[in-house]
């Protein structure tokens, strides 16, 4: 997994609420057997009009907005457990997604792939979206060790929550399997006590 510590970047605003994983990466693109190349089809059905013509009204096709941070609407990532959604965002180049609420499975998948789901409150999210619209060059500073998001032009610095174990993994670029494999003995010991009913 790619390490993540700090990031300073402009951001792409996508002020739509309840974005589900079928929109992030439609099911027909899940036929791959590798993790690469999903960025091309990120938000496919919003990004392209019939005939694969880029939709000029969709933010990813608007050169005004660039950056490694996606600022989405409330309740991001609901729906399917497909990790392809996190891969697509990461492959496209995003390293942070900001929202005021994340679906559980998406949050876990993102953290397992070096993509930071950063939750802020509704009010700040709305202000941030408006501020980016007004000034596409607005920069954000994300500091994972300190767990802070700084928006200099809004004169804001907020602390965000992240699971301490996941934070350690992201900072060091470790994954769960590296960690769990160190627990092999404890796991084997547990197995001797499992009830027959569940074996």
């Amino acid at each position: 997994m790619e390490k993540f510590t700090t990031l300073t970047s402009t951001a792409v605003p996508l002020a739509i609420e309840d974005i589900d994983t079928d929109q992030i990466i439609p099911a027909r693109f899940l036929k791959a057997t590798t993790r690469e190349g999903f960025g091309e089809n990120l938000f496919r059905d919003w990004r392209y009009l019939p005939g694969d013509v880029p939709n000029p009204d969709f933010v990813l096709n608007d050169d005004t907005y660039r950056g490694q941070v996606l600022v989405a609407g409330k309740n991001f990532g609901m729906g399917s457990s497909r990790e392809h959604a996190a891969w697509a965002l990461f492959d496209y180049g995003f390293r942070v997604v900001i929202s005021s609420f994340f679906a559980d499975i998406f949050r876990g998948n993102a953290l397992n792939n070096g993509l930071l789901p950063l939750q802020i409150d509704d009010d700040l999210l709305l202000r941030l979206q408006a501020a980016i619209k007004e000034d596409p060059e607005l920069t954000l500073e994300v500091d994972l060790p300190q767990q802070t998001l700084t928006i200099p032009s809004l004169d804001e610095q907020v602390r965000f929550e992240v699971d301490p174990y996941k934070k350690m993994c992201m900072i060091n670029g470790y994954d769960d399997i590296d960690f769990l494999r160190t627990k092999a003995d404890v796991i084997t010991a547990y197995e001797t006590k499992r009830p027959v009913a569940v074996q």
Partner: peptide, 22 residues
């Protein structure tokens, strides 16, 4: 419950998952 592909790999590799209690 449903899991992502990294977790599928975790379970295949270790029969365990790291989880925060909901």
């Amino acid at each position: 419950f449903g899991i992502g592909t990294s977790q599928v790999e975790q379970v295949l590799a270790t029969q365990c998952l790291l989880q925060v209690r909901p």
